[in-house]
């Protein structure tokens, strides 16, 4: 039975592969300015079918994942980032990430 860390590592590697092999085009803009725009993205994420075979890809696309900092922002200082687990705790995402990644839902 694999540990949570092993599962996180495997999923993180898969996400990195999706983001860097050039096939997955994520929605990097527009960046939500206010709460209404932020909430709109969350709503789209909630609408993603949890049983859909491409659920993970859909979430990455909608939230605009990037495998690098954007506008000098990165997961590391985001409020949803768990430093030790290297994990995004935004309830609509809940995925392992790297500290230097970024997405449109960045909040400090």
């Amino acid at each position: 039975m694999s540990s949570r860390k092993e599962e996180d590592d495997a999923l993180r590697a898969k996400i990195f592969h999706l983001l860097t092999d050039g096939e997955l085009k994520t929605t990097l803009s527009p960046i939500p300015e206010d709460d209404q725009q932020f909430e709109q993205i969350l709503r789209e994420l909630r609408d993603v079918e949890t049983s859909a075979p491409d659920e993970l890809e859909q979430k990455l696309v909608i939230s605009g994942f990037a495998p690098k900092p954007v506008n000098e922002q990165q997961c590391f200082e985001c409020m949803y980032y768990m430093v030790h687990r290297k994990y995004c705790e935004l309830p609509e995402l809940m995925v392992p990430v790297e500290a230097e990644w970024w997405c449109r839902l960045w909040r400090i």
């Binding site: 300015e33 206010d34 709460d35 209404q36 909430e39 909040r107």
Partner: peptide
């Protein structure tokens, strides 16, 4: 206003 109750109101990610 919708989205301002029980949600930290932000501008470009900053409260």
């Amino acid at each position: 206003a919708p989205g301002t109750v029980f949600k930290t109101s932000t501008f470009l990610g900053v409260p």
